[in-house]
Structure formats: C-alpha cells, structure tokens
Nucleic acid binder design. Structure first.
Lengths: 110, 110
DNA sequence: AGATCATTTAACCAAATGGTTGACTCTTTT
DNA sequence: AAAAGAGTCAACCATTTGGTTAAATGATCT
C-alpha cells in the first residue's frame, strides 16, 4: 500500500522519538555495521535492537543488505531529508533565514 | 526535574510524530488561536485536542497564555530549532552542504 | 445567584510500544 | 553431520497512546 507523505512523516518522527534509535542512527552514520555490532554498546537484548531496526527501516532511515549469514546496516538519509524539509518551513520563526544562502548556493552551482 | 537533551528530543520528536499535532502546529504558526478555534477543523473531541496541546506544550512546541476564560495558544519555535539542529548533522549525507552558505551569511552580516 | 461558555480532568477502552525469554531459521565452521 | 553464530519471530508483559464521554472548574454574561 502506498503511504501518504503525512504517514511517512509519522513513521519518521516516531522512529526519531527514541534515544536508542537516534543513537543507532548515529552509529551507522559513522560506519556500516552488522546487527550484532550495533547491539554491542546497548544493554538491551539483541531482539530489542532488531525491533528498533525494524522501526528505523519502516521509516526508511536505514537499509539492510544481506551478506551471507549476517547483515550490513547502513544509513539512508533520504527520510531525514524529508523531516528536515518539514521543519524548514518553521525556520522563519527563529531566523536567521537561510533563503539567501540557498539562492547563493544555487547560483554558485551554475 | 531537569531533563536531558535526549529526553527533550524524545518529547519533541514524539510530539511531531502525529499528523494532527503537526497540523495544529501549522495552524498556530499562521495565527495565535484559542483551544476551541484550534479544535474546530478536526473531527475529534475538544478533550482530545486538549490532550494534543498538552503533548505539544511538554515538548515546548507551543505556549499557552491564559486570557480570562479562554487561552491563547502560540507557536514556540525554540524546540523545532533543537530538532532541526539534531538533524543538521545528517545533512552531510544528502548534500548539497549548507556550510558554504553559512559562511556566506556570516560574512555578509559583518 | 444562576446560566453559559471555555477548557481540563477523570475514568475508561483498544491498540501500539518497548522490553523480555525461548524457539526457530539460515549460514558458516569444525 | 553436528555445533556455533547471526538474526528473526512468537508469545508474553507493563506502560503509553489516542480516543471517547461525563463530570468538574473557572470566568463571563444576564
């Protein structure tokens, strides 16, 4: 089933609302890791970590590639970009505005 | 009790993980509103809206000012800024980088 | 004072969450 | 073929969530 943008944001923000999951995201942003490697620093069970990974995967914040008997977990920044874009609208309420910066960047790339 | 930054981010991202609450945020970003005004467009009960406001308030995403028998609800962008700052680290993974833009802005402000 | 409006609180409910342990499925090693 | 390693799935549990309706609170109007 196709998900609406709202539903996708629900999944993304929900995934980010747990500090263990945010920590896992940070871990895999540094280096691709297997599930066991990810689990090592945490006191919770491997099964619990596996559940967290499922939440992150449904939000498309990570990707898993099977590689023999283990898996490689890597960051998928796409969804974070979506979250950032949602928040972007509200930047006008805390300024400084980055609009000028974007124009600048866009022009520079030509 | 004092909350850690992690706990604060938990509250913020959790608050953002519900599309009704995101819609409410957008509503009050346009214009300060009373609770009843906020509730009007939604099919859920006033009590349910009141609960959503409590969640948003605990995340410091809104502020409520008592004004006689009603309340004025307004956006508090501070927490959104925190969320944005958390995400900012991950911008390096989707580029274009905004670093250059920041330098540009900073220099321009001198 | 009594009625009414704005909002919260209380009690309740079904579903989801984050954790556990133990069994199960693959894959690799011995 | 059997054992060990990597990870998931199932069943369970306590807590939280998002909703309801009804009662309670507090301010304003008549």
């Amino acid at each position: 089933m196709v998900k609406s943008q709202a539903q996708r944001l629900d999944l993304i923000f929900h995934a980010l609302s747990d500090s263990t999951r945010r920590a896992i995201l940070y871990d895999v942003s540094k280096k691709d890791k297997t599930v066991s490697e990810i689990a090592k620093p945490y006191k919770i069970s491997l099964a619990a970590v596996s559940k967290h990974l499922t939440v992150l995967e449904k939000a498309k914040l990570i990707e898993r590639k099977k590689q023999g008997s283990f898996q490689i977990v890597s960051l998928n920044a796409e969804s974070l970009k979506s979250a950032e874009e949602w928040i972007l609208y509200y930047q006008q309420f805390w300024g400084p505005r980055l609009d000028a910066l974007k124009d600048f960047l866009e022009k520079r790339q030509k």
